[in-house]
Amino acid sequence: MSRSRMPSLFISHGSPMTALQPGLVGEQLAQLAQAIEQPKAIVIASAHWLGRQPMVGGAAKPETIHDFGGFPQALFDIQYPAPGDPALARRVVELLQQAQLPAQFVPDYGLDHGAWVPLRLLYPEAHIPVVPLSIQPRLGPAHQLAMGHALESLRDEGVLLIGSGSITHNLHDWRAGYGDGHEAPYVRPFIEWIGQKLSDNDVSALLDYRKLAPFAAQAHPSDEHLLPLFFAMGAAGQSDDLQAQRLDAGVDMGFLAMDIYRFDGE
């Protein structure tokens, strides 16, 4: 039986506490897992693995990395024992290098919370092989878009390409008094601008979001949590039709927008 082409995804993973209190994002990801064909493997670019060049995790049994502090012990007790796929990881390295994107095979990197928190909500059985991929904040959105383009062909082979970050991410607002019913004033204008530009397939505007988007500096004091969006966009293809579908998963703590995007571009 022939496989259909996998979509690419952008997932806002939120706080590590999403693993214990998944809320609406958990519901959306569970429904999304039912809506798409089960992948044979996953490549996930996480905002929590940063490097100067692309790094690709090739561990056969990736460890569950608890890369945070100050949270309940129950969060540290969670394991996500998905297998790795060293052969796919080497293929990812080759595809990136063929696109003139120097990449490095890393044999021992595991799954940080930007990877395992959303994957646990998508595929709680942890039975699908996972290859983690780093992002490179110093190289900017166009570089992440190019990384997605380089791996696009894997979608035809049953590989699900995911960028995991956050549509808004300003941890300076952690103690600013925002919460349910009291959103940070920059959140809604920023996510609406992103949604409109994706609907319009306006990639050039999105690449220049720092200058063009309302409240860009407030929504993202640094780029790393939005860059996985560009990876997912790139994986959607180089056509002028991203076929972006927004899944609204609400706003966590009043300042972390939890939007999910599915891209089916050809």
Rank of each mutant, 00 (worst) to 15 (best):
G181W: 11
L226Y: 03
E224R: 08
S46E: 03
V130F: 06
F76Y: 15
A19L: 06
P214Y: 14
Q34C: 06
G114C: 05
S15F: 05
A30R: 14
D156Q: 15
A59W: 00
P129M: 06
D208H: 15
F263C: 04
V187R: 02
L226F: 08
E157V: 00
G84W: 00
E63K: 13
I162V: 14
W116I: 06
H149N: 15
E152A: 14
D200M: 08
A184T: 05
M147Q: 11
L95G: 01
P137V: 12
V43L: 09
H143A: 10
V203A: 10
A205T: 15
P39I: 08
A249C: 15
Q31L: 13
G26I: 01
Q98K: 11
L32Q: 07
P129L: 05
P129A: 11
K61Y: 13
P72A: 13
T18I: 13
D112T: 07
Q21M: 12
P86L: 10
G250C: 04
L151Q: 05
L9S: 06
R155A: 02
S46R: 01
P22C: 11
E37W: 11
L95H: 09
G110P: 04
Q53N: 13
I65S: 03
V130S: 04
V92L: 01
V25R: 02
V203N: 04
S134F: 02
L24H: 12
R246P: 00
L75P: 06
S199T: 15
I260F: 06
D112P: 06
Q98E: 14
M147T: 00
I78K: 10
F190Y: 14
Q31W: 09
L9H: 04
H149E: 13
A87T: 13
S8L: 01
P124C: 08
